[in-house]
Design a protein around this nucleic acid. Sequence first.
RNA 1: CGGGCCGUGGUAUAGUGGUAUUACGUACGCUUCGGGUGCGUAUAACCCGAGUUCGAUUCUCGGCGGCCCGACCA
Length: 415
Amino acid sequence: MRQSHLFTKTRREAPSDEVAKNAQLLIRAGYIHKEMAGVYGYLPLGLRVVEKIKQIVREEMDAIGGQEMIMTSLQRKELWEVTGRWDDKNVDVWFKSKLASGGEVGFGWSHEEPITDMMKHFIGSYRDLPAYTYQFQTKLRNELRAKSGIMRGREFVMKDLYSYTKDEAAHEVFYNSAIEAYKRVFERVGLGDRTYLTYASGGAFTEFSHEFQTVSDVGEDVIYIHKSKGIAVNKEVLTPEVLEKLDIEENELEEAKSIEVGNIFNFGDTKSKQLGLLYRDDNGEEKPVILGSYGLGITRLMGTLVEVFADDKGIVWPEAVAPFRVHLVALVPDGVTVAYADSVYEDLVRAGVDVLYDDRDARAGQKLTDSDLLGIPTRLLIGKETIETGKIEAVDRRSGEGKRIPRGEIVGAFA
RNA sequence: CGGGCCGUGGUAUAGUGGUAUUACGUACGCUUCGGGUGCGUAUAACCCGAGUUCGAUUCUCGGCGGCCCGACCA
C-alpha cells in the first residue's frame, strides 16, 4: 500500500483524554479511532493487525477441530431468562433494547446461551458429538467504567469457542488440547515467554478455571508465577489448599501484575440441563452434553502487544501480527530516488510481500519518526546512498540494527 | 456504583468577570531535503442549559461528556 493513499495520519501528540499507552500510541499512529469511552473503531492499519491476530487464532482453533461460524449480536430475552442471566442483578453488563414490534432484546455480551440453544437443533445423539464451534464476535458490555484504552472497553472483539462433548473424560481431552492451542497462539504473537497458564476460580462447575495471563505492569490481575513449572496461580484463589493441590511451595512463587488475555472453563452439564441440550448415548439413555467455554480477547491482545513491546519511539509489532512486513521509505524527494523506490515497491508487491510504501512528499525526518511510531518490523530506506551503492539499508524496528541488502536480493529477502 | 480531577480552534495548550495566548496541523508562497528545516501570510476555539451580574468562557447550580482511584469484571 502506498502511504500517500492511506487516509489516516500520524499525530505528534496523544489526545489529552487518553492515559493508557496502548490507546495513545494506536491513536497517534492512526490505528484506531475513539468513538466514545471504551468504544474504538479500527482503521485500515488497525484492522490489518486485528485480522492478523484473528488468522493466527483461527488456524490454531481449526487445528484442534474448531469450526468457525458467527452468531447474532441481538439476543432473545426469553432464552437468557431460562438460565437466570437476563436479570440485571445477575449480569450487570447488559445493553438492552426493545423491538418495535414488541418484546425485548439484549446485545450479546456473551454467547453461551444462544450457541448452546442452537446446538439443540444439531445434537441429538452421541454420534453427533463432539462438536467444537467458535466465532470472532463483537461483544457489547455496558461496563460501569471503561478503562485502559482498548484493554477494557464496552465494545470489543473476542474469539469464543464452545466445546460440546459426551462426558467429562472427552471434555478433559479437548480442554487440554485447547490449552496447547492457546499456548501456540501466544507463542506465535511473541508473548509465549511471558504468558502463563493460570489457575483461577472455577465457580460452580469445576474446581479451577484457567486463565492465560500476560505479565505486564498495566495488568489488572495479580498472579503468582511458578517459573520452573511454567504455571501461575491467580491471587484470588491463592490458598494453602490450592498450593498443596498443585504441589507448589509458596516460596517458589513470584508475584506479578498481569493482563488476562484468555480464559477457559468448564460449564459441566449445568447449562445443558437448563437449556435442554441432551443426547442419547449408545444405550439409548438421555444425557446432558458437557459444555466448555474458551475465550480469547482479540482486541485486548492487540493492546497487550502494544503495551508489552512499545518503546519510547512508538509501537513495535511482532512480525506475526504487524500490519505490514516491511516499511519502504523513500527518503529524498528527487526523481531518481523516487523512481528507484517505486521500482523496489513494485517488485515487492509483485512478489506478494506485505509492504507499506512511504511515497509521501515529506521530509526524511518526519518519515523516519512516523515509521518508528507505526512499528512495522523492517524498514527499507531508499536514499542517495542507495542509488550510489546499489544496496538498500534494512533496519530492524525492534533492535534498530541495520544491514545493507543488494538491490537484486531485496525481494528474496522478504518473499 | 462511591470518591477525585477535568471540558478553550482539527490536535495540544495559556489566560481572563469586559470575546482569548502559543505550538502543531491545514492552505498559499519562498527555502530546505538521511531523524518532525527555516521564514512569511492565512485559517480556525471557550460542551449545553439555568442563575448571579450592566456584562459569564471565567463565579454558582444542573445536565451531558472525558479521565483517574476504588468496587465490579463466567
